[in-house]
Computed example of a mutant assay.
Amino acid sequence: MAYPTWVDSVFFHFVVAWAIAAIAHVFASVDTAARGRTPKMEADACLATGLKGIKSMNDRKPVTLAQLEAETETFFGMHWNTDVLGIQPPAWHVWREFKGSVPNYQLGGCYALFAGDDLEYIGLGASRGGGLYCDHGISRRLSSHVYRLDKERGPGWLKLRPGWESITSIHTIGFEARHSHLASALEAYLIRAFEGRSRNARR
């Protein structure tokens, strides 16, 4: 049986496509109404989803030193009372030369490893130790897991252990013995704040 020639025409296919689109729009409108949402509400929901996606992408960007310091300040705002303790909270100190002693070597606390401007890892050095090296938690932890003596360069020089070669600076924050319990809390807080944006998420 032969079909009319207009069935094969471009105009016919255009009309069919338009009809299908119109029917789909009707069903979409009915579904939207059934959920009690207007077309504007649907558009707003789509915009919100898009903005959420953008925020999610930003959340995966590398962490900077400024962000680390800002989150640390927020932590102390919740857990440090300067009027009661009589002293200001500790601050981060940077070490880039890898020679001599790391800042806060004699204290327990936290450390942050940076590759250029990007945070790679947040760690805890809170071992109490004993004898002459009591409370040297930060230096004890770093010497065990991050760096070691560099015999080729001579006394005082240190080099990074395998797996940490990309690290260009080490930042530490030390706590006196009576406040050392806050070190583990700060580490947990920062890891949660920067979840998915450092090596900690892949441990």
Rank of each mutant, 00 (worst) to 15 (best):
L132G: 08
D150K: 01
S169W: 07
H145I: 10
T168E: 07
C134W: 11
I170D: 03
G123Y: 10
P162V: 10
H179Y: 15
G163E: 08
A188I: 08
D150F: 10
L124M: 06
P162E: 12
A183V: 02
G156Y: 07
E176C: 09
S169L: 08
S180N: 11
S143K: 07
H136S: 05
G137Q: 04
L158S: 04
W164K: 02
K151M: 13
R153S: 15
A183C: 09
E187N: 04
A183W: 06
F175N: 01
F175C: 02
F175I: 04
I138G: 01
A185H: 12
R140E: 13
S144A: 15
E187V: 11
I191Y: 06
A183T: 03
E176M: 11
T168D: 05
A177I: 14
S127D: 14
P162N: 06
T168P: 03
W164L: 03
P162A: 11
L158C: 03
G156F: 08
L142I: 13
S139A: 15
R178I: 14
L182W: 06
Y189T: 04
W164P: 00
L149H: 07
L186Y: 07
I167Y: 08
I170P: 01
K159P: 00
G156M: 06
I170R: 00
R141C: 13
L142Y: 05
E165I: 07
K151L: 14
H171Q: 08
I191F: 09
S143Q: 11
T172I: 05
Y189H: 15
S143C: 07
R161A: 09
A177G: 00
S169G: 11
H171G: 02
G130P: 00
S139H: 06
L149I: 12
L158N: 03
L182I: 07
K151W: 14
A188M: 11
H145Y: 13
G131K: 06
S139G: 02
A185P: 00
L190V: 04
W164Y: 15
A177T: 13
Y147V: 07
G125F: 03
E176K: 08
S139W: 07
L186F: 12
G156Q: 05
S180A: 14
S169A: 15
I138E: 01
L186S: 04
G174L: 03
S144Q: 14
H145W: 10
Y147R: 02
R161I: 12
S127A: 15
S144G: 10
L158A: 03
S166K: 10
L124Q: 04
R178K: 09
Y147K: 00
G174D: 03
G129V: 08
S169P: 05
R141Q: 15
L142Q: 01
G129W: 13
L160W: 07
H181L: 13
S169N: 05
G125W: 01
L186N: 01
T172E: 03
P155Y: 14
I167R: 01
R161T: 06
G137C: 09
G174A: 04
A183P: 01
D135V: 04
S180Y: 10
Y147I: 10
E165P: 01
A185D: 12
W157K: 00
S180C: 11
I138S: 02
H136G: 00
